[in-house]
């Protein structure tokens, strides 16, 4: 599905170069359910942004379905994000002035080609599946955190992506609700074969995935210490 070859990403803090991701080689196969585990500042979020094409690597290649995507232009990158990847964030990142349904529909507004499905039907079906269809006309700040994260997952799924990238999806939730969210993601992987990558610093969250990658100081390590 996606392959990283010698990928590095550095930032400049003043004159000082900081390597957030340092020469990582990584392959994520289709239909995997995978956890990227690292402490804060380990570079795991940057790694996720690179996989999700939200950032471009400083060096190295990223191959998506065999195609090098590390040097694509904004329009092509946006298209890949729109079609192939769905993001789920720690702080939900819903737009508060839009209703739940409108938030779920947001990615469909940016499709440059006609959609092979009816957006509203698709969005409502997803909301129903996650048990929040009666909340569809609510604004995000009027529903609970668990419900907001379900809306975010529905939004991530609306375009039928091949891969879901979840950055600390349970970070703002209590453990029970967090477990429910992980189970939803697990269900999606099992039922529809969606590739799911969960980035987390919590061992017990990572433990629910089928494969774990440990990150420390921007590099993959064999064992998380």
């Amino acid at each position: 599905m996606i392959k990283l070859e010698n990928v590095s990403k550095s930032y400049y803090l003043g004159d000082e170069e900081v390597k957030a991701v340092d020469n990582i080689n990584l392959t994520i196969k289709e239909k995997e359910f995978i956890g990227i585990l690292g402490s804060s500042g380990s570079g795991k979020s940057t790694l996720m942004h690179l996989i999700g094409l939200l950032e471009q690597p400083t060096s190295g290649r990223i191959l998506l379905e065999g195609k090098d995507v590390s040097q694509l232009k904004d329009i092509e990158l946006s298209k890949v994000r729109n079609r192939k990847v769905g993001f789920v964030f720690q702080s939900f990142n819903l737009i508060n002035r839009f209703t739940v349904l409108e938030n779920v529909l947001l990615p469909t507004k940016y499709s440059k080609e006609p959609l092979p499905f009816d957006p509203v039907t698709r969005a409502e079906e997803l909301l129903r599946r996650f048990g929040i269809s009666e909340r569809k006309s609510f604004f995000p700040n009027k529903i609970s955190g668990g419900q907001q994260q379900r809306v975010a997952i529905a939004r991530a799924l609306v375009m039928h992506p091949k891969m879901i990238l979840a950055d600390e999806p349970t970070g703002n939730l209590d453990s029970k609700t967090g477990d429910e969210i992980i189970n939803i993601l697990k269900g999606l992987n099992k039922e529809f074969g969606v590739t799911v990558v969960i980035v987390t610093h919590e061992h017990d969250v990572a433990a629910k995935t089928y494969r774990q990658i440990y990150i420390k100081d921007g590099q993959t390590v064999d064992k998380y210490l």
């Binding site: 904004d74 729109n82 993001f87 947001l106």
Partner: peptide, 10 residues
């Protein structure tokens, strides 16, 4: 940022 993440171009 959110719109860009879900596929909005510049």
């Amino acid at each position: 940022g959110i719109r860009r993440a879900v596929g909005a171009t510049e």
